[in-house]
Write a protein that binds this DNA or RNA. Structure first.
Lengths: 204, 204
DNA sequence: CACTATTATGAGCTTTTGCTCAGGTATTGG
DNA sequence: CCAATACCTGAGCAAAAGCTCATAATAGTG
């Protein structure tokens, strides 16, 4: 049971390479274990075992279980926002191409481990500060998308703000589903339909 | 930590009214506690406490914690499918009205306790049997929706099967979001946009 | 009312899990 | 080569949570 506002700082900062390596091993193992068993059943001992290090070492670098999840979330968000910054210059073009870029970006952004992402977002109880950061990133993304659509001449919806909220969420969640059940149908097919849906909606 | 394939049958079946009442109290309390604290932190002792019964009584009717969540899920699914059966005769009409009926149905179906539903769907690891039941119910619903759209003259999409999957999922998830964060915007507004998106998509 | 079946109780046993700490091993710097 | 520092180990502690069982209370029955 993760609880907000706990100590998240490590008790020891790595100074040698092997320490950095151990830290990475822990995080990689944690990502694997959390996404496989969920947060509650992803015990610290299991993580240590999977990382092939002792439980003691784990607690050298993370003060508690929550801190591990928090670190994973921070890493994901950092990676995500970095991608977004590069994605902006894809704005001009036909409406469909813009939507397609948006969908592709979402898909790419979740290829690694959708299970883990779900757990981080939905099971984690983080500090207010961390949650604010996430919210800000999300809002920033929505605003970014909004601007692109606001400029485009083909866009024709009653309420752009709500439309963008709806679209971003829909694309995001369908991406999750796609990544979580990869066997059912081809990714391109779903991508096409998703693009169609959003494009037709925006055109009015 | 819910694990699949465990005993779900009660060790005692109620034969008196007060027993049935106790069972209901447990389920009601469990729904409340799970949706408030999550599955992991929703302890059986807390459930018993909230139901104002002893922990011993709880284990008279449920062999373990998982069985309680499973029962809640079964009840939800049953209620849902019952509603669906009545919903079928809403088929004819304009495409928009059909879509609106679909969206309304989804919204109504999740008014009670979206938090709980989320937990059931996302934190529960159920037996294969139970999961099959859920899947079957879902597939049935998709097929139903598919039939309605297949008959409608205004529908024009490349791949109806994938389109219906996409639509049902999108409507479902947006409904979850709507119910989980009720404060942001008016329900009707989002409903309208959601209906617009789906309708325009289907029209092509 | 007496007798049995059913239901309710809750202290506490058992297991699980987050986490500590005393004591080792590797690495670095002089 | 030898301290000093950094790093690693894992048995086991304390707390929490799932669950049991002996016993008590209540409801049905003739």
């Amino acid at each position: 049971m993760p609880s907000a506002d706990r100590q998240l700082e490590p008790r020891r900062k790595p100074r040698q390479v092997r320490a950095e390596l151990t830290r990475d091993r822990i995080l990689t193992a944690a990502a694997h274990v959390f996404s496989e068993h969920g947060y509650a059943a992803g015990t610290t001992n299991r993580i240590a075992e999977h990382a092939r290090i002792s439980i003691g070492s784990l607690y050298q670098y993370f003060p508690n279980k929550d801190a591990i999840l928090a670190e994973l979330l921070v890493r994901h968000v950092d990676r995500g926002s970095w991608k977004q910054a590069e994605e902006v210059d894809l704005s001009p073009g036909t409406l469909e191409s813009v939507v397609r870029a948006l969908v592709r970006d979402a898909i790419d952004n979740h290829r690694d481990d959708p299970q883990l992402l779900r757990i981080m977002v939905e099971e984690g109880r983080f500090s207010q500060e961390l949650r604010d950061t996430i919210t800000r990133h999300g809002a920033q993304r929505v605003a970014q998308v909004r601007d692109v659509f606001a400029r485009h001449p083909d866009v024709n919806v009653r309420n752009l703000d709500i439309a963008v909220d709806l679209i971003v969420f829909t694309v995001e969640l369908n991406t999750h589903r796609l990544a979580a059940f990869p066997q059912t149908v081809a990714v391109e097919t779903v991508e096409n339909e998703l693009v169609d849906m959003v494009t037709r909606y925006l055109r009015g």
